[in-house]
Design a protein around this nucleic acid. Sequence first.
DNA 1: GGCCCGATCGTCT
DNA 2: GACGATCGGGCCA
Length: 198
Amino acid sequence: MILPQSFYARDTICVAAELLGKRLVRVLPSGKRIAGRIVEVEAYLGVEDPAAHTFGGRRTARNEAMYGEAGHSYVYFVYGIHHCVNVVTQTQGVPEAVLLRALEIVEGEERFHDRGPRHKWFNGPGKLCAGLGVQRDLNAVRLFDPSSGLFIEDDFSISEGDIVSGRRVGVDYAGDAAYWPLRFGVRGNACLSPVKFE
DNA sequence: GGCCCGATCGTCT
DNA sequence: GACGATCGGGCCA
């Protein structure tokens, strides 16, 4: 049911595409379970990717989790307001990851009914973290371990024809790399982030 | 629906 | 001291 660590220790683009349809589960300190189907992701290809935090081998306290074992989380804080969560891929020392950008809720809906239309509850990386209560205390945790409070379960697989790809969002500083087709989504899903795939 | 803009602070130089 | 792997509100259509 829970995806094994070996799922993540592979080519980052493959992991990104195969994460679509899987179930991201958050168990809050209260024991309450919230889960959503992953419908949008972005791949970040490590030292050779100008859009990645680890471009050129940059290694700091913040991005240390990206250099760690596959299947760990990488949570960081942006714009002074939001958190974003990634899944670390590849082997130790190869700092690649997949950013989780949007979910379709499947468990715990009642908690969100006062937050506007359902398809906007998790349609962006910042809202995804806010909705699940993901902050830096969940950085570098094991996503293949149910005791982490954040883990990923097998659920659906999306066939290649139902996956759309496009440019990545918010990385214009990376030049051409912003246009590499490393964002993947479930075709036609209402819960995708607002930025269109081209 | 789309475009513009301000918020707000951790992180790195 | 500058900037960001974002969001929501305001405005216009």
